[in-house]
Amino acid sequence: MNNALLKTILAGVAAITMGAAVANAGPLMDRIEAGEPIRIGFANEIPFAYPGDDGSPKGFVNAHALGVLAKMGYDNIEPVQTEWGGLIPGLNAGRFDIVTGGMNILASRCENIAFSEPMAKVGDAFIVAPGNPKKIGNYESLAENDAIMVTGAGYSNIEAAKAAGVAEDKIMQVPGPTEILAAVRAGRADAGAGTYFTVKQLADSSGGAVEVTDPSAMPEDAVNWAGIGFRKDDQDFLAKFNAAQKEYLGSEEMMKAVAEYGYGEGSLPGDKTTEWVCANR
């Protein structure tokens, strides 16, 4: 084989290899290689993800995602705040690259975007009067103690309580978290229901007027898992993110970063995979 022919063959192999690499690289890697920042999208969902006074990304999901990205060697990050309903459309429209908003992994969402492996287990819990006088720990205990539950209108807690035997006239519906706290503080309700992270924040802000129950007392079907959202054509970056997250999740460094937002050992996702969650939630 002469040198000219050998050079032609090698050039062809190089072109094919380069073409395969380009084909496997998604838009996010293209942006990174061009020196563009990684844009993280989130809404104003305390304590999951929200903007600080200076617009910086706060919340335990942002803290976690930034930690994973740092482990991957990426620190050129641009926060993008939007409405909750705009997170998935904004991601797929290319307005940002990653959703760090604290989004639960659900079958309907798995059809539209790709999720990282779970980074948090998101269960329900209650706020109750100090000392938990009616010994409320789960929905069944509400019915057993003839307790009045308050929660937000349209919250999933309503159906969960009814399924556990709580009478409809024992379920008070209010606009949102502020009103849930007010009802329990005033004694109009024995327990206020919501996600653990929501009610934990209410308890922390109450000055000791209420306390939060143990989320592990809730039934398995009341539990969801949150992940980081990606475009489906960024599978290459997602695979690298999952590998880095596996090393970072639950580490001393990670737990220190998220502690101020109420994320503790009980918030770790356990052994559930995104594939399982997409099929079962």
Rank of each mutant, 00 (worst) to 15 (best):
D214K: 04
Y155I: 00
P219S: 09
I136C: 01
K232V: 11
V174F: 08
D214F: 06
V174T: 11
A153S: 15
V128F: 08
V166S: 02
A183I: 07
L142C: 07
G165I: 03
P215Y: 04
Y196L: 08
I148C: 02
Q201E: 14
V174A: 06
D190L: 11
E220R: 13
G194Y: 05
Q173S: 15
A183F: 06
T195I: 03
V212H: 00
E168S: 15
A191T: 10
A147Y: 11
A143G: 03
P130C: 10
T213M: 03
S205H: 00
Q201M: 14
A182Y: 00
N157W: 00
D190G: 06
R231T: 14
R185I: 15
Q235A: 15
I158H: 03
L181T: 03
D204E: 12
P130V: 12
L181N: 01
K170Q: 15
E220L: 09
P175T: 15
F197N: 06
D221E: 13
A143V: 10
G194I: 01
G187F: 10
P177D: 14
Y155R: 09
T195W: 11
R231Q: 11
A167L: 11
V212M: 03
Y196K: 04
G192S: 05
I228N: 00
G207C: 01
P133I: 13
R188H: 13
G227A: 10
V210W: 02
L142F: 08
V223P: 00
D146L: 02
G187I: 07
N132P: 03
I228M: 04
G194Q: 12
L181V: 04
V174G: 01
I136H: 01
T198P: 00
V223C: 01
V150S: 07
A226K: 02
A222E: 09
M172F: 09
I180T: 11
A186R: 10
G176E: 04
I158L: 07
M218I: 06
A189E: 07
A226Q: 13
D236Y: 11
G165A: 05
T195R: 08
I158E: 08
M149W: 05
Q235K: 15
V212Q: 01
Q235N: 14
N224L: 13
S141N: 10
V210M: 02
Q201D: 14
A209D: 12
G137D: 11
D204N: 12
A153I: 15
A189R: 07
G208Q: 04
T178I: 12
I148Y: 09
A193N: 10
G152F: 06
E159Y: 12
D214S: 06
P215T: 10
A163R: 14
E220H: 06
D233T: 09
T151E: 02
I180P: 00
P219G: 08
M172A: 05
D233C: 02
A209T: 05
R231F: 04
T213K: 00
Y196N: 13
G207R: 01
L142V: 14
V199T: 14
A161D: 03
L202T: 11
G208C: 05
I180R: 01
G176Q: 08
N132C: 10
P215C: 07
G207D: 01
M218W: 03
S205K: 12
G154R: 12
Y139H: 12
Y155Q: 06
E220M: 08
T213F: 02
V184M: 04
I228Y: 05
G227P: 01
T213C: 05
